[in-house]
């Protein structure tokens, strides 16, 4: 009898722990949210602005010498091909994790070079931290010994979200076009 009780209790604890854990671990079923500032200096809440719409988002910064331009140039072309093939135009967001140097003005110029319809966002350190947590991405300033001259490590690749703003796909850097298109297709099943 006693033993059965112990088992029952352990079972309960396991369920409780599982539930508690699921609140913290990134789950593909979680709705992702960005609350940041757009290029016009307005609050951008992804759940409101892109309500019901699928979209893609990538994190970076304009001082990024290699990876970000490569990713954005690639993404712009992939989105173009996707639009031609599927007739669906996906919203694209670029989130700068370097708000100290990336002013809305600088960001506007930067993303327009790659894609006239791309939206650039940034925010306070706290807002960016929350956005990174919501999307399970990482960023960290490095090489900060030379004042304004530093680099930022960040998660690379493009995240694909469906209309419910669940994370449904990831496009890795330099992924073949067909793989990228397959990931984008997950956004609007």
């Amino acid at each position: 009898m006693k033993r059965a009780l112990v088992w029952a209790l352990s079972g309960l604890m396991a369920v409780a722990l599982g539930f508690w854990g699921s609140q913290w671990l990134p789950s593909p079923h979680n709705q992702r949210q960005l609350v940041l500032t757009d290029m016009d200096g307005q609050v951008f809440d992804s759940l409101e602005r892109l309500k019901g719409e699928p979209y893609v988002v990538t994190f970076g910064y304009t001082y990024c010498p290699d990876v970000c331009p490569t990713t954005l140039a690639y993404l712009a072309q992939v989105l173009d091909v996707y639009e031609t093939q599927s007739g669906t135009k996906l919203e694209a967001l670029f989130v700068s994790v370097d708000p100290e140097r990336d002013t809305p003005d600088r960001l506007a110029q930067y993303v327009a070079y790659f894609d006239a319809d791309m939206t650039a966002l940034t925010g306070s350190a706290e807002q960016l931290k929350q956005a990174a947590q919501s999307f399970s991405v990482y960023f960290q300033k490095v090489d900060g010994t030379r004042g304004d001259d530093y680099l930022v490590d960040h998660s690379a690749g493009v995240l694909v979200l469906n209309g419910a703003h669940q994370l449904v796909g990831v496009i890795r850097d330099n992924a073949p076009l067909d793989d990228a298109l397959a990931e984008l297709a997950k956004a609007s099943p």
């Binding site: 001082y63 110029q109 930067y110 327009a112 070079y113």
Partner: peptide, 8 residues
């Protein structure tokens, strides 16, 4: 790239 001071 407009707005970007670095290249490679």
């Amino acid at each position: 790239i407009p707005g970007a001071p670095n290249s490679a």
